[in-house]
């Protein structure tokens, strides 16, 4: 749970992302309540005001650090070429794909494909047999517990429909 920070070289560009997002979000929030009753505004202006103040102090601190030459505006603590090598970018792409396709292909098939592709990317193509076996077991296990046994409303596709028909007729 300890935050990962690079204490040797301060990559201030990366450190500015959260405060910049915080300020932009707060300004958007203020714009959304500008004409609202006071009950909608009071705590948002209190919290948002403090947030903007704290972020402003942080921006000044960063500027001073930059002027002193103790840091750079790089994003190396957020993104490096190693992220491609370790498969992090690939994992992000498969995760987005998982969210997009689960509604169309259903839980079991999408989970199987996501697990297989992600593990292959992260494992750099090694031990494909074990990966497919693990992915298949996890996806089928998930289907058995959550859909077959608990009857939860997980997204369903042709696999779930086919299994429902098979089990229904059985």
């Amino acid at each position: 749970m300890r935050p990962d920070t690079d204490k040797d070289t301060r990559h201030l560009g990366g450190e500015l992302v959260i405060p910049a997002f915080a300020v932009l979000f707060t300004l958007y929030f203020f714009s959304s309540i500008w004409n609202s009753p006071w009950t909608a505004k009071v705590s948002a202006f209190l919290v948002g005001g403090v947030l903007i103040l704290v972020c402003s102090i942080f921006f000044i601190k960063v500027a001073v650090t930059l002027v002193r030459g103790e840091g750079s505006l790089s994003f190396a603590n957020l993104f490096t070429l190693a992220d491609i090598r370790t498969g992090r970018i690939g994992l992000l792409a498969t995760t987005v794909g998982y969210c997009v396709f689960i509604d169309r292909l259903g839980f079991t098939l999408t989970t199987f494909l996501f697990l297989s592709i992600s593990m292959l990317i992260l494992g750099q193509g090694k031990r494909p047999g074990l990966i497919v076996l693990t992915s298949g077991t996890m996806a089928l296990g998930g289907w058995a517990v959550f859909i077959w046994a608990f009857d939860t409303r997980f997204p369903r596709g042709w696999f779930e429909t086919a299994m429902q028909m098979v089990l229904g007729n059985g």
Binding site: T26, T39, V47, L51, V54, F58
Partner: peptide, 24 residues
């Protein structure tokens, strides 16, 4: 403090409890 107050700000998303005005 930035993380905490950002969390509080994100937690404010939604309608207010008195007049149900949508916010953020």
């Amino acid at each position: 403090l930035i993380a905490g107050f950002l969390g509080l700000m994100i937690g404010s998303i939604g309608t207010d409890v008195v007049y149900a005005t949508p916010r953020g």
